[in-house]
Design a protein around this nucleic acid. Structure first.
Length: 106
DNA sequence: TAGACGTAGCGTCATGGGGC
DNA sequence: GCCCCATGACGCTACGTCTA
């Protein structure tokens, strides 16, 4: 998993870094400045909880997104296989018809 | 057998779009 | 505007395969 010291997000009250989540005693400067924006311990806990919830939701969304993408790619691959078969069949059919036509002309 | 390399899967972040 | 969701991008780990 990629965890760098400078991870931040913008705009939300749940802005706390991953390093603080993993190590509550983290004194990373950004964490300190962000955490100081909260008036009480309660609101910090609240923000952490919100962040955790958001990360969990996004984790699940990413998993689902990958699953759908894989399914889509599989679908395309199957379609390619079907079309290739159809193409082969049509080419052979055309060849056979050309043969018949040639014999009639001769 | 150790190291290089390729691939799959994962978590996180950033961002755009839609709903309210 | 704010919130939520979907998704691309990135970095990391685990694992399999190849080669010296």
């Amino acid at each position: 998993m990629a965890v760098t010291g400078d991870e931040t997000e913008t705009g939300s009250a749940a802005d706390l870094t991953t390093c603080q989540l993993r190590n509550p005693s983290c004194s990373h400067p950004q964490v300190v400045s962000e955490a100081s924006a909260y008036s009480s311990k309660k609101s910090i806990e609240d923000a952490l909880q919100k962040r955790e919830h958001r990360l969990m939701k996004n984790r699940e969304a990413a998993r689902e997104c990958r699953r759908k993408k894989k399914e889509y790619v599989k679908c395309l691959e199957d379609r390619v296989a079907v079309l290739e078969n159809q193409n082969k069949t049509l080419i052979e059919e055309l060849r056979a018809l050309k043969d018949i036509y040639r014999h009639k002309v001769e």
